[in-house]
């Protein structure tokens, strides 16, 4: 059966549409021209400008801190939950299953404003802590989905075999389940970290004084005016996300 060439043409244009803006941004981050989008030769000047930007370093530090802590929270809470949701199929877990996935489907702005109201009404000072909590909440379903997908593929007979060979539940987990599960856990961690690193909308609502993350910094740069330095920072962010997420995809396949 031949696929009509029109379909290939359209699908190639679809991929070009998805990648062209990013590629153009990357290319022009090396452009020597300051104001015009006309090519005036290669330069690393804009990257150099980023290196000496103190505020940017602070934002990077904040982003890393929030990313690592929210990922650890999501893993700590999510992996165990994934086990239960996968193994125990009574009505209660089914309902929980549906509700826990909600942050993935409702518009981000809803979570942003709801968390803002919550933190203000409970007198929690807005800052890195509130951002970390917010990121933890939307990373949690990601971890649960990925770890569950791997658990579904596990052969239950392997665990039964471990029990038959005299392993207690903890030993069976440590020696059989965990080694088979770790690629999924790392994959989930990479995904949670990437999502935290890139999140703008929710962070925008629950940030406080001094708690600038990288996307918030990019946003403030965009508002002050278009400059090739934004292209450079954007390039670094996009390339980092692409590497992390590709690693995550590779590990999910393992």
């Amino acid at each position: 059966m031949k696929t009509p060439p029109l379909f290939y043409g359209l699908s190639v244009s679809g991929l070009i549409f998805l990648y062209a803006p990013i590629l153009l941004l990357i290319i022009f981050s090396f452009n020597a021209a300051r104001f015009s989008p006309i090519w005036e030769g290669w330069t690393l000047h804009w990257y150099g400008q980023l290196v000496t930007d103190r505020a940017l370093w602070a934002a990077t530090q904040n982003s890393l801190l929030v990313g690592v802590s929210s990922t650890l929270i999501a893993l700590g809470f999510g992996v165990g939950a994934a086990f239960v949701l996968e193994r125990e199929r009574y009505t209660g877990t089914r309902v929980v299953d549906g509700i826990v996935m909600l942050p993935l489907v409702i518009p981000e702005i809803m979570m942003g404003v709801a968390l803002l109201l919550f933190f203000v009404l409970t007198d929690m000072p807005l800052g890195l802590l509130t951002i970390t909590i917010g990121h933890g909440i939307f990373s949690l379903p990601l971890v649960i989905v990925i770890v569950r997908a791997r658990l579904q593929k596990l052969d239950p007979q392997l665990i039964e075999a471990a029990h038959d060979l005299g392993a207690n539940p903890w030993q069976a987990f440590r020696l059989v389940t965990f080694p088979l599960l770790w690629p999924a856990i790392i994959s989930a961690a990479l995904m949670a970290f990437t999502v935290s690193l890139d999140d703008f909308v929710i962070t925008f609502f629950i940030t406080g004084p001094g708690a600038t993350t990288l996307p918030l910094y990019v946003f403030s740069m965009i508002r002050t005016g278009i400059s090739p330095a934004i292209h450079a920072l954007s390039t670094l962010l996009v390339v980092t996300s692409m590497i992390l997420i590709s690693l995550s995809f590779v590990l999910q396949r393992k």
């Binding site: 998805l18 990648y19 803006p21 990013i22 153009l24 941004l25 022009f28 989008p37 995904m191 990437t194 999502v195 690193l197 890139d198 703008f200 996307p215 990019v218 946003f219 965009i222 278009i226 934004i230 292209h231 954007s234 962010l237 996009v238 996300s241 692409m242 997420i245 590709s246």
Partner: peptide
């Protein structure tokens, strides 16, 4: 992959 990269940055690309 583009979906998992910063939405803000990808939107900025269109401003550019």
């Amino acid at each position: 992959i583009p979906f998992w990269t910063s939405f803000l940055v990808r939107t900025y690309a269109w401003i550019f």
